[in-house]
Nucleic acid binder design. Structure first.
Length: 158
DNA sequence: GCCAACGTTGGC
DNA sequence: GCCAACGTTGGC
């Protein structure tokens, strides 16, 4: 299995929203690197660190998992959507999305500053300056350490 | 609200 | 194919 970190602005969709909905469609990915990760590597059951961006504080808020593999994101064809893409063709969709299922909400958000200050998380993409990628791979070691920091209930499958 | 960093676009 | 201009992300 692979492990991920996915960003969402909590004003748009937060871990609490996911806890309420239990499952959601992850539409709106509009970056080719992120799309390629979803298309090529995201599998049902992969665990995801749910990251709050543009938040107070920004940081990791909980855990989700991939519930459906990549399929065309309908908002690319919706003129009324903020995610509309005039260049996307119905017979050759440009943008894909996955479905995501709630796993766990951390007792407290792990702030970005906390992540940055932890030597065990050195090299984790999300703490790099200027890193904007909204779907990032996470190593098993980093993922496990984040779960430990959060005193999480979630356990990493072997 | 500011602005650094980054990805994308488009002229050449 | 280069790269300047532009738009967006996201921390602060």
């Amino acid at each position: 299995m692979r492990l991920w970190l996915m960003k969402s602005e909590p004003d748009v969709y937060s871990i609490d929203d996911l806890a309420r909905d239990r499952r959601t469609t992850w539409e709106g990915v509009r970056n080719y690197t992120a799309r390629n990760s979803l298309r090529d590597d995201a599998k049902v059951g992969d665990l995801v660190l749910f990251y709050h961006s543009n938040a107070e504080p920004s940081g990791i808020a909980g855990v989700a998992k991939i519930a459906r593999e990549a399929y065309p994101d309908p908002t690319q064809f919706d003129r009324k959507s903020a995610y509309y893409d005039a260049g996307a063709k119905k017979d050759d969709p440009r943008w894909l999305m996955v479905d995501v299922q709630f796993v766990e909400r951390f007792a407290e958000v792990i702030p970005l500053a906390r992540l940055k200050s932890d030597p065990a998380l050195a090299g984790m993409p999300v703490i790099a300056k200027g890193q904007r990628l909204s779907v990032q791979p996470v190593t098993r070691e980093h993922f496990a350490h984040v779960l430990a920091i959060a005193n999480a209930k979630t356990e990493l499958p072997r």
